[in-house]
């Protein structure tokens, strides 16, 4: 069964069958990753460009590993946009990409809308690896995969995303995907971190973390951007930790059975305490392995469509 779109720009509007298909395919690849020989010839002869305008070692390595496991030819293109040459790099790069005959482009950019723009100028399949504060669909998929792997289902689960929702690209992808799969999604954070109008997506908002912990099955903790948030959206990291930090005391008191996710990298002592990060609730390291499997599934399903 093939997907209904030849690009993965976001999880907005992606049908349930497609998400199911990706998650099920990822299960197969997860098994492949446990084998001694982890390589399959599925995308042999395909050329994939990883176009990273914003540095993200973790996501790029995860994609690159997935591509190599599928035997694709990989080109890495990292272009950090310096403030003086904003825009220039993008346009020149895009012109070059247009001229190259590549099959797939994995793109990450700090401006929302760039992946969508690429679908208009390139014949390749476009995969969004994070655009601005818009979407990060493979992260959303791997979070869902990880939850499903641990709890056996998504339908009917209560999932709370906690942190700086306003600047997050992970939150929207999670909301769209999880809701499509039948989960109830809520958000938790101070109002300065909850973007205007998001309740129109049918998500509950918490400002009390204890309540959020008590009433949910899963807590997906977003990373606090130390440089950006302290002193603006929150008074200080210390205050954030005191009022919104996930600690083992809180978990033990309000919901010892809750499942903890974190897209990483974590700030210990800010959004999550060390005990929780290393403790029994979390599946943070599983998420990393699952990330490769989910990205293999997406690359495979898009790369073998026609």
């Amino acid at each position: 069964m093939s997907l209904s779109s030849r690009h993965l720009i976001g999880l907005f509007g992606v049908p349930k069958d497609d998400i199911q298909n990706i998650l099920d395919t990822a299960v197969t690849f997860r098994e492949v990753l446990e084998r001694p020989i982890k390589r399959v010839p599925t995308l042999q002869g395909k050329t994939i460009v990883n176009l990273f305008f914003e540095s993200s070692t973790r996501t790029r390595i995860s994609f690159e590993l997935a591509q190599k496991r599928l035997s694709a030819d990989v080109i890495n293109f990292s272009a950090s946009t310096s403030s003086t040459k904003k825009g220039e790099t993008f346009k020149d790069t895009v012109r070059n990409i247009e001229a190259m005959k590549v099959d797939m482009i994995v793109v990450r950019h700090e401006s929302s809308g760039v992946p969508q723009f690429l679908t208009r100028i390139s014949k390749a399949n476009i995969i969004n690896a994070g655009d601005g504060r818009h979407e990060h669909p493979t992260q959303g998929l791997l979070d869902m995969f990880s939850i499903r792997e641990k709890l056996g289902k998504l339908d009917g689960l209560k999932v709370c995303i906690i942190g700086d929702i306003a600047h997050s690209r992970v939150a929207l992808s999670n909301i769209y995907g999880l809701k499509t799969m039948g989960a109830q999604v809520s958000l938790c954070g101070p109002p300065t971190m909850i973007p205007r109008g998001i309740e129109m997506l049918g998500v509950k908002i918490y400002h009390d973390i204890n309540k959020a912990i008590a009433e949910n099955d899963v807590l997906n903790i977003l990373r606090i951007q130390l440089e950006r948030d302290a002193g603006t959206t929150i008074p200080s990291l210390r205050e954030y930790h005191n009022y919104f930090g996930v600690t083992s005391e809180r978990l033990e008191k309000y919901n010892p059975n809750i499942l903890i996710l974190h897209p990483g990298p974590i700030n210990r002592g800010v959004e999550i305490s060390s005990e929780v990060a290393d403790g029994p609730y979390q599946i943070i390291l599983d998420q990393v392995t699952n990330g490769v499997a989910v990205r293999m599934a997406v690359l495979y399903l898009l790369g073998t469509m026609n």
């Binding site: 929207l172 205007r196 109008g197």
Partner: peptide, 15 residues
């Protein structure tokens, strides 16, 4: 414009 749409599109809002 800050609102539901700026949130959906992930664009920096101007209230």
């Amino acid at each position: 414009n800050e609102g539901f749409l700026s949130t959906l599109l992930g664009l920096p809002p101007n209230p």
